[in-house]
Amino acid sequence: MNLQALTQRALKGEVRELELLSLEGGFYLARVRLDHGQFTLLDDAAKPMHLRSVSHLREMLQLVPPFPCVLVQQCVHDEMCGVREGPIESMRIPFSLATPW
Rank of each mutant, 00 (worst) to 15 (best):
M1T: 10
N2A: 09
Q4Y: 12
L6F: 12
L6S: 08
Q8Y: 08
Q8K: 15
R9C: 10
A10S: 05
L11A: 13
K12F: 10
E14A: 15
V15H: 06
R16P: 04
R16S: 11
R16V: 11
E17D: 11
E17N: 11
S22K: 04
S22H: 12
L23P: 09
G26N: 01
F27E: 10
Y28E: 01
Y28F: 10
Y28W: 07
A30F: 06
R31W: 11
D35T: 14
G37D: 09
Q38N: 08
Q38M: 09
L41N: 01
L42R: 09
L42G: 04
A45N: 14
A45M: 10
A46M: 12
A46W: 07
L51F: 02
R52D: 03
R52Y: 04
S53W: 05
S55N: 12
R58W: 01
L63W: 10
V64G: 08
P65L: 12
P66D: 14
F67A: 05
P68W: 01
C69H: 03
C69Q: 07
V70P: 00
Q73S: 14
Q74R: 11
Q74Y: 05
V76P: 01
H77L: 13
C81G: 07
E85C: 10
G86E: 07
G86M: 06
E89T: 05
E89W: 00
R92H: 03
I93P: 01
P94V: 06
A98R: 13
A98T: 12
W101N: 08
